[in-house]
Simulated assay, not measured.
Amino acid sequence: MIALIQRVRRAQVDIEEQTVAQIGAGMLVLVCAEHDDTPEQADRLLDKLLAMRIFQDEHGKMNLNVQQTGGQLLLVSQFTLAADTRKGNRPGFSRAAAPAISQPLFDELVRRAQTRLPGTQAGVFGADMQVSLINDGPVTIPLHLPPKSAEN
């Protein structure tokens, strides 16, 4: 799975000028499933998101995680994170999983995140969304979690 994490002061997702999700301070996470991704990787991604110490402590050091700060998560599916830009000027998206694979993974990630961090919000899978945010810092962190077999 691929994720792009942004520490935000606030973020929201609109569809056809209607707000469908919004959070205050926390993390906006753009998420892309790849072909061989599994529910276990979604679990690992969620563990990483909840443990990631990217929020400032009382000394101004990035030493706290989203749960310690009372922050929220906004999860947005975004297949374009799998873009292959090595050739030409038009990105290829062949690394992104098909919707039949990626939608259940994304939905399960959202469900588990809402269980572990109440108040978690999500965009609408496959929708034409407008995402707005106030990036805090700015702090933006790319994260790629390949299947466990690919890590060895």
Rank of each mutant, 00 (worst) to 15 (best):
Q67C: 05
F93S: 12
M52K: 06
I141Q: 07
Q121M: 09
V131T: 00
A96Q: 08
D136Q: 10
R86P: 07
A122R: 06
V76E: 07
D128N: 12
R116K: 08
Q12T: 07
P99K: 06
R86V: 12
F93N: 09
L133C: 07
N65W: 00
C32E: 04
N63D: 06
R10S: 12
G60D: 02
Q18N: 14
S149V: 15
Q18A: 14
Q78F: 11
T19G: 02
R112E: 10
G60F: 00
I101A: 14
R90I: 09
N152Q: 13
I2H: 15
P118T: 00
E58K: 10
Q41F: 01
Q41P: 01
Q130A: 07
Q22P: 00
L50N: 02
Q103P: 11
F55I: 01
S94Y: 13
T120E: 00
T115S: 11
Q6G: 03
Q121L: 03
L4H: 12
P138C: 03
N152K: 14
L49H: 03
Q12K: 14
N89W: 14
S94A: 15
L145C: 06
I23F: 05
R90L: 09
V66Q: 04
D128Y: 07
Q78H: 13
Q18I: 08
Q18G: 05
R112L: 09
D47E: 10
L4V: 10
D57L: 01
P142L: 10
M62I: 04
P99H: 08
V66L: 02
E108C: 11
P39W: 08
L49S: 06
S149M: 14
D128F: 11
D57A: 03
R53N: 02
L64G: 04
D14K: 13
R7G: 02
T69Q: 13
I101E: 14
I101W: 07
R10L: 08
T85M: 11
R7W: 01
A25C: 12
A25R: 15
L81S: 07
G92F: 08
L109M: 02
F93R: 11
